[in-house]
Design a binder for these strands. Structure first.
Lengths: 115, 115
DNA sequence: ATTTAATGTCGTATAATTGCGACATACTAC
DNA sequence: GTAGTATGTCGCAATTATACGACATTAAAT
């Protein structure tokens, strides 16, 4: 019935959704945590630590790399992945802004009549 | 999470991924922002404000409701949706913890040799 | 009671994600 | 050179997400 396709999505909304999608799989969350915990960037050891095949882990790595959340550097035979902490900090701010905005007003009281 | 081998990941990782997935679509981000901006919870007006069909918006609403991020209250003919700000605050903390942990160490210097 | 309006659900078509084996590539070691 | 190792890419199958029209349901209005 209603056909009011007025507003498309803002770049801000798309950007947030893009990052959220990157975090929308436990394996990718685990990869980031792993890279954060290791002092040195590890490479294929990541695959060994996850309950997934090497191929699948590689795919997840490529996904994170495509968004520049992680970076890979070839070092002879192995590849060193590391977090892009600068970008992660930026992303953190974006998420914080989103959540702060969303929780600013107590829109609905617990049993409240807001309508 | 298709073919989910999610069981192998920690509950913390799964929880974060679950919420991230809910935010992994601009429409759902837009819905949350919309509900936050309105003083009163709106209902089908949400559909009118998004460049999607009413059916599709309804689906997105159900997805957010399934995670309890939003709540719907029937009020006669219309349905009032509102944010679960309490849960959103919790989720915000989870994300903050994740990002803080990920950005604590400067794993790789900008042009740095970390390996 | 009949009409109208607001919502949700169902079915379905298309696209995207997930997972992995098989193959290709690139580098090291001998 | 040949052999072995570490990675990434390709192709395929199964699953899930996205989008929307058609139908069902519910409540207000007449």
């Amino acid at each position: 019935m209603t056909y009011a396709k007025t507003a498309a999505f803002t770049e801000e909304q798309q950007q947030l959704a893009r990052i959220a999608k990157a975090l929308a799989h436990p394996a990718r969350v685990a990869i980031i945590q792993l890279l954060a915990s290791k002092k040195t960037c590890i490479s294929g050891d990541i695959a060994a630590e996850l309950p997934l095949s090497r191929t699948t882990v590689s795919q997840h790595l490529q996904e994170l790399k495509a968004l520049d959340l992680i970076r890979g550097e070839i070092d002879g035979l192995t590849v060193c992945y590391c977090l892009n902490t600068e970008l992660l900090r930026q992303v953190h701010q974006q998420f914080t802004a989103f959540f702060v905005e969303s929780t600013a007003n107590e829109v609905c009281a617990p049993g409240g009549s807001c309508c």
